[in-house]
């Protein structure tokens, strides 16, 4: 599957990474070659093979519905870039 320059720009936008044209071209070149390597997968017959998401065949454990965490806002917000009145601040979100 050929990778277009536009695919990289689109991925960069979805992933919220700013890229200039040179960077986009550079990544497109790398990623094209990586995907060529990955394309070896296409030659394998996987008909009827169930996808494997986790290496062990275990199932989800369930947690009892109990409140175990208290208010640690002060501590957690010490590493925040911008807070006011306990809120995280971001540039204005327009709905």
């Amino acid at each position: 599957m050929a990778l277009e320059h536009e695919d990289v720009r689109r991925a960069a936008h979805l992933a919220r990474l700013s890229l200039n044209d040179d960077e986009a071209a550079h990544y497109a070149d790398d990623i094209r070659r990586i995907l060529e390597m990955v394309d070896r997968l296409q030659a394998v017959d996987t008909q009827g093979v169930a996808p494997l998401a986790h290496p062990l065949d275990s199932t989800q454990r369930l947690r009892a519905d109990e409140v175990t965490e208290g208010d640690e806002r002060e501590r957690f917000q010490r590493c925040a870039p911008a807070v006011e009145d306990g809120l995280y601040l971001v540039p204005r979100v327009v709905e």
């Binding site: 009145d85 995280y88 971001v90 204005r92 709905e95």
Partner: peptide, 10 residues
């Protein structure tokens, strides 16, 4: 969306 110096609070 109250005004925090032109910012939005989360």
């Amino acid at each position: 969306h109250e005004d925090y110096h032109g910012m939005t609070g989360i």
